[in-house]
């Protein structure tokens, strides 16, 4: 137990050296990693999305790829392609950039729905199917996808059914003034290269398994059910959280408990993760596909503030 906590603290400290002043974002990224989930980062450019992903990859000694999505990108550009090798007279699979541990899928809403769905399917099943052959993706595997919510021009917003595949949706936000200053002073980028792995891929998988063993009391499970049920009956939402969403919340909460050094869940784990784990899984009534007006996070926050917590 304390060993796990120690490892997690080392990762967080290591990432924290590169991404200054955002401990809660780092915690969410680590939670995503431990829960075998993927992160959707919604933010304007230049707040450290790449730094976060790269630093996380370096800290766990894993492979890292960045895919910059554009509108003319094809599915094969992501998952790879089978190439005829005349010398061997057989098809050789040329794996795409997806075949690594940590993937930063930048501006995922810039590409066509086809390419998006090929990425998301791969993400979901941790494998790539091509020409009747399946190629498993390396483990651990984690996608950090980003999209800029302010842009409408020439974008293809992810459909709600696809958003469901992300464990958490988070925002990084601008750093606080003192931290921004220390970034300017150079505390940030050169550090990235200097980061050394503080744990290995096997450790990550061991931690993931440990997260699965975190004890969830009956009352906490009831609390999750109550939260999810509240999203389904809320008059403000036209689409509540699916069963997949409640599972995701439980998984994330377990990882969070582990990262907090506990082998049992407390309601706080659930409560603090409810908004990042559920907000992208609901649809607000009377709202366009991309937004404005009431946002789902505000609705969820008000739900979380109303649902009674187990005593």
């Amino acid at each position: 137990m304390s060993h796990a906590l120690d490892l997690i603290h080392r990762v967080e400290a290591s990432v924290g050296r590169a991404l200054v002043g955002k401990p809660e974002v780092i915690r969410l990224a680590v939670v995503g990693l431990l829960a075998r989930g993927h992160l959707l980062i919604e933010d304007v450019p230049g707040v450290g999305k790449t730094t976060l992903a790269a630093a996380l990859a370096r800290s766990i000694g894993a492979g890292f790829q960045r895919i910059q999505f554009t509108s003319d990108m094809l599915p094969s550009d992501v998952i790879g392609v089978s190439i005829w090798e005349p010398g061997k007279s057989e098809f050789v699979f040329k794996p795409g950039p997806l075949f690594t541990n940590i993937v930063l899928a930048d501006e995922i809403n810039r590409t066509t729905p086809k390419t998006q769905s090929s990425l998301l399917e791969a993400m979901n099943e941790a494998q790539v199917s091509l020409d009747h052959t399946t190629y498993p993706l390396p483990r651990p595997f984690m996608v950090l996808a980003t999209q800029n919510p302010r842009e409408h021009e020439g974008t293809y917003p992810l459909p709600e059914s696809q958003l469901d595949r992300f464990l958490l949706r988070i925002r990084i936000g601008y750093p606080g003034a003192p931290d921004e200053k220390s970034v300017l002073r150079g505390a940030g980028s050169p550090v990235l290269e200097a980061l050394v792995p503080v744990l290995q891929a096997e450790d990550v998988m061991a931690l993931q398994e440990e997260a699965d063993r975190v004890r969830a009391d009956e009352s906490v499970l009831d609390y999750i059910m109550a939260l999810v049920a509240a999203t389904r009956t809320s008059p403000l939402l036209s689409l509540g959280v699916s069963p997949r969403g409640s599972l995701a919340l439980l998984r994330a909460a377990r990882a969070q408990a582990l990262a907090d050094g506990r082998d049992y869940l407390v309601p706080d784990d659930v409560k603090s993760l409810a908004v990042p784990a559920l907000a992208h899984r609901v649809m607000v009534k009377g709202r366009g596909a991309q937004g404005g007006g009431l946002d789902a996070e505000a609705v969820l926050r008000s739900i979380v503030q109303d649902v009674p917590v187990p005593r």
Partner: peptide, 18 residues
């Protein structure tokens, strides 16, 4: 108070105020 970005005629629009 906030206005939905897209309001359609004859369709209930949800207005919200935090």
């Amino acid at each position: 108070a906030d206005v939905p970005e897209e309001i359609f005629a004859h369709t209930p629009a949800v207005f919200g105020a935090a």
